[in-house]
Design a protein around this nucleic acid. Sequence first.
RNA 1: GCCUCGAUAGCUCAGCCUGGUAGAGCGAAAGUUUCGUAAACUUUAGGUCGUGGGUCCAAAUCCCACUCGAGGCUCCA
Length: 626
Amino acid sequence: MRILQLHCDSIEYNPTKKEIKSAEEITPEPKRLEEVVVVFVAIENGDDSEIAQKAISEIKTSMGKVGCKKLLLYPYAHLSSNLAAPSTALSLLKEMESLASDLEVSHAPFGWTKSYNVKVKGHPLAESSKVFSKDVAPHDHGHTHDDEGQASEALKSESKIKSFWYILSPDGTMTEVDKFNFAKHEKLEILAKYEAAKKRAVDEPPPHVKLMKKMAIADYEPASDSGNMRFYPNGRLIKSLLERFVTDQVKEYGGLEVETPIMYDSHHPSMESYFNRFPARQYNINTEGKQLFLRFAACFGQFLMANDFQISYKNMPMKLYELTRYSFRREQSGELVGLRRLRAFTMPDCHAFCTDIPQAIEEFRKRFDLSRNVLKEVGIDDSDYEMAIRFTEEFYNENKAYIEELVRKMGKPVLVEMWKERFFYFVLKWEFNYVDNLGKASALSTDQIDVENGARYGIRYFDESNTPHHPIILHNSPSGAIERVIYALLEKAALDQKEGRKAQLPLWLAPTQVRIIPLKEEFAKHCEELADKLSASDIRVDIDDRNETLGKRIRESETEWIQYTLVIGEKEIGKANLSIRDRKTGDVIELSFDEFVSKIKEQTKDKPFTKLNLSRYLSKRPQIMV
RNA sequence: GCCUCGAUAGCUCAGCCUGGUAGAGCGAAAGUUUCGUAAACUUUAGGUCGUGGGUCCAAAUCCCACUCGAGGCUCCA
């Protein structure tokens, strides 16, 4: 960081036009300040909070000497030829401004071309220039991000972190990744390469993107920011059923469902300290003098809430749960893909507040089972995902038996990442990674043991002797982002299609479970009565009353993945049994009404239900996607 | 965010290299047809060629910038 500091009688500046796209949103108007120290600042690559602090404290010292209490920070790119990214620069500039809030401080708009007029005082201390840089040279292990310019200490340390990769087998043997025989574990190999070697090679778009459009589930919304999707009626129905299912499961486990705000004050003390721990990749909103950010997880709300609870050791473990619609993360634009990686997503997030590590481990067990069960019931099997487990060396040495127990439960080898020292707030973390047919891995369920945030958020519980302690906090998402679950289901369906099987959603998630086709118009009434009866049993049924040939309507029922199709003609009118075309086999079977209903109920047992989310009559529906 | 590629009717795509009045299939509308388990027939409508600028007598076509998307890199609290 380079600064030029001038003690001035006055300065006038006038923003004329935006210089860069990411310029601050302001109403350009001329400003005049008197008796002020003007600091021209150029923020350079590698600058971070530490440097900002250092700079501002030097500025304050010299301002004390000249007895001036008014400070203007003036972004001035021309001082350096090695500038940081504008986003970094702006956030550091704002950080400096807030660090000087004991003075009368302001900053000239960032990213604007400005004209200015300055009158500098004539005393010896009035002018000075300084350069601030890190004392420590960056590590040279090949992962420094010097060309990016980072906003926080966290990202720097993250790049310094050194990982050791192993494969841990159910029998307890730990093998270095390079030496493991992946012959029977193809997907694990993909995950290991993906994570450890960071190797990927794909040259086609992900198949689920096509399906999400074709099945009228979801689509891009160009009028929003990238990674913010629109969900059509089918997508909303599927998503809402998944949301309800996960929520019901967590409640059964003992989670207390809450709802917390989606935006928070960046200057709240807990947030500030948390921010210093993580790269700034959030959406920011400035409003009426407040700097708000959109939440990127449910942690804040739940921790702030827990902070206000009176908690006894008898109440522990205490589980809070929220399904965030939405969480927001400003992922890099190049990383956004279909429903796999979004900037706005729906995330079940369950925190368990525990007294100590043994209790945390006990709870961790339950949540491991909960997560596996949720995925299984949702339609994602063990064979679809690979487990990764991450821990510090210290935690491993103290809890070896437990870690091996988890792997034994998983029943197949898992990828291990071990750190020499704890950098993140957690000491142990596992996640289930869905590996798609293009060889991309993405995390679904996850759980972590957090030993840091209890203190950060001032959460306390009282033990037997009425002494307060900070709890250990578990962070679990039993399913991962709901959008990502849909992605996984669609990728599975795409794989089925590719390998010649029929693609299908689980029946409880099917937008239409039963389709009725009247052979001629004269059977319309009969069809409607039948549809009424089925709906009364909580079955999503619709009627293809369009003037199309039977063959065509059957075909469309097929392409919409509808499992059961009932054709109603003369034969059916007179007879008690139904003729049911089962898409899985393509055969027509005969069942009584009750038999048919219980056949469906069997498959949708213990799953939530919601009503049809489109008009019952196909002739009344707009065409959303072809 | 960086590099590479792409954007033409509601959808899928041809036309672009080599500049000269915008094409197909599906879908939609109207009519005919009333059908037995994966695509009936006829007719009609439908396009600022992603947006903005440039070159040219003339731009969907060549050039530049931007937006959105895809792949890779980086990243994923």
